[in-house]
Amino acid sequence: MHTMWKGSISFGLVNIPIKLHAATEDKDIKLRTLHNKCHAPIKYEKICTVCEEEVKPEDIVKAYEYTKGKFVVLDNEDLEALKKENEEKAVEIIDFVKMEQIDPIYFDKSYYMSPHEGGGKAYSLLRKALQETQKVGLAKIVIRSKEQLAVIRVYENTLVMETIHYPDEVRNATDVPNVPSEDKVTKKELDTAILLIDQLTTEFEPEKYTDEYRTALLELIESKRTGKETVTPSEKEAVSNVTDLMAALQASIDRTKPKKTTGTRKKTTAKVKKEA
């Protein structure tokens, strides 16, 4: 499993060298965009809004727009130094709380934690302590240039780090439009709804739920592939140097041809003397 972060977690005087591994993976089917005319992939270019020319990666800088049209440019060196300074810090568990106190809306991404060199015993100690107390640890960690709040908990005998949103990143639920302020339901309606919920209540078995749209899309793609309903980008016409050279030579010859005179030739009139 790929390691995407190395560091250490500490609580009190206990330090645990660990590695982070992505616990989930995106299985969305990536669809390419093609030109309908020739079925060639579309290329997206970075174009300057003023110069109207393509900008190379080495000519791009990062900046913060503090007001409309005004920016503070941030040097890559400054950003890298700031990132390194924070990533090299040991991640300290600052609080322990009950898991049920954290609403699921705060959760973002999940990472498996494995012990790094010499961290096996301390890893086991934290895992056992969390299991016995039925609590989770709260910590701060810098991942991909962003400081994030994280929950450390036990999942199937493995420590998991769940990054969670800060309170100011969660929008206020009171701003959601058209939410009824009062429950205008009758007791009979409520009893019927509760009965329906009871009838549909079961144990959570994640393996019985599948992405039906993704499955159907894969089947559609496969049926088109096996049915030979495929396309191939048109070949880009190769420019012939010979043709270009001949055209250039011909143009040169045409330019150097002597111009034909268009003036009329004067006629000479012979005078005949009459003999007397």
Rank of each mutant, 00 (worst) to 15 (best):
F107V: 11
P41A: 03
P167K: 02
T174F: 00
A22W: 05
E275Q: 14
V239G: 02
T215E: 15
K46F: 07
L200H: 10
S252K: 15
S234A: 15
E85Q: 12
Y64N: 08
P41S: 03
S10E: 10
L20W: 05
G227A: 06
A23S: 05
G119K: 11
L217C: 11
T49M: 00
T133L: 08
S181P: 01
L200S: 09
L74M: 15
S110H: 13
A23I: 04
Y64P: 11
T24C: 03
M161E: 06
V272Q: 09
V73D: 08
V72M: 10
L196G: 03
P167V: 03
K236E: 10
T33L: 09
D108P: 04
V61F: 05
T243K: 13
P177R: 06
R127L: 14
I197W: 12
K98P: 02
Y166M: 03
D191H: 06
T3G: 00
W5G: 03
K208R: 14
D175A: 08
S223F: 08
K109M: 11
E162W: 01
H165C: 01
K98R: 13
V151G: 00
Y155A: 00
T215L: 12
R127S: 06
R144M: 04
K257H: 04
D254T: 12
E58A: 03
D108I: 09
A81W: 03
M161I: 10
V176I: 15
E219W: 01
V176K: 08
E156F: 00
K70G: 02
G137K: 01
R265L: 12
K46Q: 12
K224P: 05
A251Y: 08
M113A: 09
K184H: 07
T243Q: 10
E207Q: 14
G263E: 14
L20G: 02
E88N: 15
V179E: 01
V170R: 01
E45L: 07
H39Q: 14
K121T: 15
S145Q: 11
G12C: 08
E205Y: 02
A173S: 11
K274R: 06
L34Y: 10
D59Y: 08
E212L: 10
P180W: 01
D108Q: 13
E92D: 14
I47P: 01
I194S: 02
T201V: 10
V185R: 09
E45A: 03
A40W: 02
L245D: 06
G119I: 14
A129H: 07
V91I: 14
A122G: 12
E229G: 04
V154S: 01
S8Q: 11
D26R: 05
I143P: 03
I93N: 04
